[in-house]
Write a protein that binds this DNA or RNA. Structure first.
Lengths: 323, 323
DNA sequence: TCCAAAACTGGAAGCGCTCCCAGTTCCCGG
DNA sequence: CCGGGAACTGGGAGCGCTTCCAGTTTTGGA
């Protein structure tokens, strides 16, 4: 390429990266050569020389890859992908479900296979947490893990959202409100239960003990069945996400308990399923795409040597007909 | 590292890649050094030397990134990710929505930024099709594009599935069956309409002209409204995917037309929405995770210098209560 | 016309790894 | 005890790009 343009490789390199110290003439010669030869610099070689891979990884943890089927992640990815595109970084996606998968993430971190990493869906004691700490690479957490908050993260106001949902239920006259909560080994699961609990206490009502699900529709249905059997006089349910809310709705329908007349239900997430559910689910909206976008932006800032501050995104109650 | 172990870099390299020509003693020395130093080879340097990046890209085309929010892709990714993990390849995800995005994919292809590429959701005349042809890199198509079939692809038996769905409707005594079809600038959209048409013709019934949607729930609802206005006597609808089927269901519910008593509906995909819909949607199941897996496996074969044959995955009718 | 400063140029040294190949060591049968 | 082949070893040349730096050319003011 350089020889075709009649310049040295140095000049060619500078011209390609439009760096200074290249005369207009040579710059054009290089440009012409590039066009003529269809030359595209080899990204690996460039990565080796610059010590930058030009890629950021998004890792989704979980003991089962199917966790990723939750449409939540798709939206996060849309946001993250957009922000990375702006910074001209590629997105590597790691579904760290198996031990093998986690090991590969560890190697990615240590072999400098990416310029930075976004970590999501960590459970308590997840080995990725330590790996992240040891990594010599920017790491931003999507959602705080259980335990001490990491240096950089983006999260959603889970406590506030859950509180608002519960307050709404209470404000509509519901007094026997149970909580179908998410996995309690995740911070989101715990925080949403806390929000529920706070609101109940503040209203002078007795919070129910956590009825744990795992964020899936079927677990929500099962949890609802348990609650119904134990407390036939329930008049409200706060589900820690929409999938479980939809499951609860299904159980209630099968049990012949009209919603919201008999029992009101509110979910969390505001995914498509909330709109499609029957009746449409009142739910706590969280800005999922923005979540992904901010996570990526924070990572980009870190990669560029800045020191961004953690971010907590607001939620907002969306009222439909289930409550 | 090599010097710590007291061997040459050649020997260290061979030991790390457990290649032959390394004595047991040195192999152990290297192993010890690795453990002691926590050494992990730099993946970029390795990539440069071996001319293999260790990554495969999955690109999802579309004019709008929100197409990716379709849970279909999440399942594809789960499958592909698993298969790539087996081959020890990383997954790069490219949402080629904007021109910028497409340009980046082009550069990825030409700069050897990946060992191979999987292409999905191509529309007629999509610039990525030509880019793929020109790429000096293995490319497998997920779903054939409109036009001549590419050399390597994985697809689903769209025609057969649509035919089966329509035949089922007909077999239940429905005679005025319309089709809400997907975008006709995609091969899946066309093929599913063809399958519907074939079945109608074979049954001696008049196929309806295509009522085009864009695979979204709202487009399905809109299409259903149009159909209902034009043909109040409809007694069956084949929707080219579940999202549109769910939309149709919504319109029918709002119009007070009982399903399936009055009008039967069948969808295509068998996503979660089909199960959650009210009534649950009879639909054509396609093995989406397998789709992703096979696509990735085909790519891996290609990367390894083999010459796999295109694959068409079977579909299967899942009968629920909407038809 | 002359000179210093500014602008440009290209040789060469990496980046961290793989792999060819010539040289060395080891092991055996003869 | 020797020769030959198998097994091992490490020097060195890349992989394709960036970047430092010493050297060369331009520029413009005196």
């Amino acid at each position: 390429m350089a020889e075709y343009a009649g310049v040295s490789r140095s000049v060619a390199s500078r011209a390609l990266n439009n760096a200074p110290h290249v005369s207009r003439a040579k710059r054009e010669a290089v440009e012409r050569a590039v066009r003529h030869l269809g030359y595209v610099p080899n990204s690996t070689a460039r990565a080796l020389a610059t010590r930058q891979t030009g890629a950021a990884a998004l890792v989704v943890s979980g003991e089962d890859p199917s966790i990723f089927a939750d449409p939540f992640f798709a939206q996060v990815i849309v946001g993250a992908s957009g922000a990375l595109e702006e910074a001209d970084l590629h997105l590597m996606l790691c579904l760290a479900a198996s031990d093998r998968g986690r090991k590969r993430v560890g190697e990615l971190l240590r072999s400098k296979g990416a310029d930075g990493v976004m970590l999501m869906a960590l459970r308590e004691g997840d080995p990725l947490i330590r790996m992240a700490e040891e990594a010599e690479m920017p790491v931003v957490f999507g959602g705080r893990p259980v335990g001490p908050a990491p240096r950089w993260y983006v999260d959603v106001d889970n406590v506030g959202g859950a509180r608002e949902a519960t307050e709404y239920l209470v404000s509509r006259g519901r007094t026997r409100v149970a909580a179908i909560c998410g996995r309690l080994d995740t911070e989101a699961g715990r925080a949403r239960y806390r929000g529920y609990r706070d609101a109940m206490l503040a209203a002078g009502l007795d919070p129910f003990p956590p009825q744990e699900g795992d964020f899936t529709e079927s677990s929500g249905a099962a949890a609802m069945a348990v609650l119904l059997a134990a407390h036939p006089d329930l008049d409200g349910v706060f589900a820690a996400n929409d999938n479980m809310g939809a499951g609860a709705l299904r159980t209630l329908r099968e049990a012949g308990r009209p919603v919201p007349a008999d029992i009101a239900v509110v979910g969390f997430d505001d995914l498509a399923v909330a709109r499609i559910a029957d009746p449409p689910l009142t739910t706590v909206h969280q800005p999922i795409t923005a979540f992904g976008r901010e996570m990526a932006r924070m990572l980009v800032a870190l990669v560029n040597g800045q020191d961004p501050t953690p971010l907590i995104l607001p939620t907002r109650l969306v009222i439909r007909s289930s409550a």
